Computed example of a mutant assay.
Amino acid sequence: MGRDTTGEFVQRIVADAARSLYAVPLADFVASRKALAASAKTEVAAELGAKEGTAAAKEILALRKPTVTAWAMNLASREDRGVIADLVGLGARMRAAQARLDASVLTSVRGERDATITAYVERVAEVATAAGAALSASGRDEVRATAIAALADESASDAVASGQLTRALSYSGFGEVDLSGAVGLTSSGSIMSVLPGGRSDAEPESPESSPEAEVDEDELTEEELAAAVAAAKAAKAEAKAAQKARQAAEQELAGAEAEMAQAQADLEAAEDAARAARKAVIAAQKRLDSARSQVAASKRP
């Protein structure tokens, strides 16, 4: 085991198995998973004991079979590290620029972004076709969505670079990319491994290696600061307008509730008056009937 701890040894065995598993043809995935689990169980059991060997095998057996699109992207990650490096590197630069609100860099890389995404989609489609599984139009859309997610989120970038995707990724436009069930993970929840050349270790890039860093400072320019202040003021004005609208709505609601209460009271009063009127009519009818009876009786001989 060398200097590996027990946990490190098991995770290394599982990660090696995952790396091998996600490189096999899709049709061989299930059989390969069983074989790798059995091999890992034997190796770990011999080193640490049967319990640990069984646990390692279960971890490997839990690795999900990729979709056709995910399999194609994993294949591209292994066959063309250049296109992956371009995607990962561009994503690192874009996220670094976004973090320091560097609008000039984000604007300048739009063309590069489009070209990088297109190159990635085309390369994935090429390797899939060469492997006998041409991507459909929807498959290409999934590859494009995954590339966009990788540019936006570091964890998504690592997932794509790992070559162990189980499904396509997507980015909603804010927040983190949902990686649940999307990539092979260790029992601790981290990505099994990232293929050589696929790490975004330069995020953010050092001043010596980043062309933009030679001319752009982390501090905002006066124009950018003014734009940020204007945006903040606009957001504040929108918040105030929303608050006023809410207050007006609350007042309108309160007025409607008061009117409803008054109408209910008026209705109850009208119902009480109607009941009283009915009682008066009944009493008057009784008196009328009594008077008629008396008149009739007085006319008898």
Rank of each mutant, 00 (worst) to 15 (best):
R3P: 05
D86Y: 10
M94P: 02
T118H: 13
S206Y: 13
S188G: 13
A274T: 11
G111T: 04
P196R: 03
D86E: 14
D158V: 00
R140E: 14
Q262L: 13
Y171H: 11
I148E: 15
A283G: 02
Q264D: 12
D86C: 13
V105S: 00
F29V: 03
A15L: 04
G91D: 12
A156F: 00
R95L: 01
A150W: 05
G198K: 01
A17D: 05
T186K: 06
D266F: 07
A17G: 03
A27P: 03
T116F: 07
A46V: 02
M192Q: 15
V194M: 08
L106R: 03
A227I: 09
D153T: 01
A18L: 07
Y22M: 08
A31K: 07
M73S: 08
M73G: 02
R64T: 10
T69N: 06
R140C: 08
Q264P: 01
R278P: 00
F9N: 10
A119C: 12
R246A: 10
D266H: 03
P301Y: 08
V24S: 04
T221S: 14
G111D: 07
Q285W: 09
Q251N: 03
S172Y: 06
L75Q: 10
R12L: 04
V30W: 01
G184P: 05
A128F: 05
D266V: 06
V10D: 03
E259N: 15
T221G: 11
Q98I: 06
K51T: 12
I282Y: 09
T67H: 12
R100H: 11
G91H: 09
Q262D: 15
A130Y: 08
A35N: 08
T221K: 08
D289V: 09
A297F: 04
V194I: 15
L267H: 14
S187Q: 04
L106Y: 00
R100W: 07
V160P: 02
A17R: 05
D28E: 14
E257A: 12
V177K: 01
D201T: 09
V194H: 10
D16M: 05
M192H: 11
L185P: 04
V83C: 02
L185H: 02
L195A: 12
D102G: 08
S32C: 09
E252A: 15
